[in-house]
Simulated scan of single mutants.
Amino acid sequence: MLFSDHPRTHYRNAPAHEVICQLRFPSILTINTVEPADFQEAIRAEFPQYARRQDAAPPRITGLGGPSPKVEQQPPVTNYNFVSEDNQWKLNLTKDFIALSTLRYPGWEEFALHLDKPLAAFIRLYKPAYFLRVGLRYVNVFSRSRLGLEGVRWSELFAPAYTAPMQDTSIAEDRFLNCGCDLTLKLDSSCRAKIHAGPGVVKRNAPGAPQDPEVKFLFDMDLSMNGNTPCTLAAGALETLHGHSTRLFEGAITDRLRDAMDAE
């Protein structure tokens, strides 16, 4: 089952590892060249820490199909970072997008509240024509040891749509060296989802960080609405994406996993 109408549920042992919302807009070049002092002042109470970095832009290839195509290096993109005092919330602003991410997902309503003020300030100050893409991504990491499910096969915790080969109980689970599932789904006339699901070891990229050898299950949903979304409809677009994410998440998990996550 890919979708489920199981009622939306809050879980005490929720698996969300990171949640990211990104809204892309037609390039506003002044953001790349002028520090956003007025924007910072509008959000500084919630995001007091500030940093700026230069991100490399992908090269532009011209003359494809001709006798001498050229690779043109593009100027770097300025990425402004605004971070909460506890380092759990980060807001990014570039000439092409604004994004909010958190490593401590408290639920949709509170996440949306954290976005409301920065998004309103951005629209008021920069007046984007519209949003080209509205995106919402949930990176869920399930740990059997954390949930008290050691020894339980992944095929008992996730739907066959994501664990089909592992449903064969005659094969030991640790013989599957790679069993990931990658899907792109059309959700409605304007929304789609890219999903990666499967077991693996989550690597920590920080220098010197200890590595966790436990095999976990990753369920990564990247939902998006494409087309020109008016700024006044951005919040509604995100609500629509969140509704789709709930049906996908509930469709992916089994009742045994729901019980272990402990519904509130």
Rank of each mutant, 00 (worst) to 15 (best):
L2R: 12
F3V: 03
S4C: 03
D5K: 13
E18V: 14
E18M: 13
E18S: 08
I20R: 01
I20S: 04
Q22E: 14
R24V: 08
S27C: 07
I28E: 05
T30I: 14
Q40D: 04
R44I: 14
P48A: 07
R53D: 10
P58E: 09
T62E: 15
G63A: 08
G66A: 08
S68Q: 14
P69T: 14
V71K: 05
E72H: 15
Q74M: 12
Q74V: 13
P75M: 06
N81H: 12
F82R: 10
W89G: 01
N92R: 10
N92E: 13
T94H: 02
F97M: 05
Y105R: 07
G107M: 05
E109T: 15
D116Y: 14
A121L: 06
R124V: 06
L125S: 08
Y126E: 06
P128C: 08
Y130E: 08
F131S: 07
L132W: 12
R133Y: 13
R137V: 06
Y138L: 02
N140M: 00
V141L: 07
R146S: 11
G148S: 05
L157T: 01
P160Q: 09
P160H: 11
Y162G: 01
T163I: 04
T163K: 01
M166N: 03
D168G: 03
E173S: 01
E173L: 01
G180S: 03
D182C: 00
L185V: 04
D188R: 14
S190Y: 14
I195N: 03
I195M: 03
V202G: 00
V202N: 00
N205P: 02
P207D: 11
G208R: 09
A209W: 04
D220S: 04
D220E: 07
M221P: 02
M221I: 07
S224E: 12
M225C: 03
T232E: 13
G236K: 11
L238V: 09
L241A: 01
G243S: 09
S245F: 05
R247K: 15
L248F: 13
M261E: 01
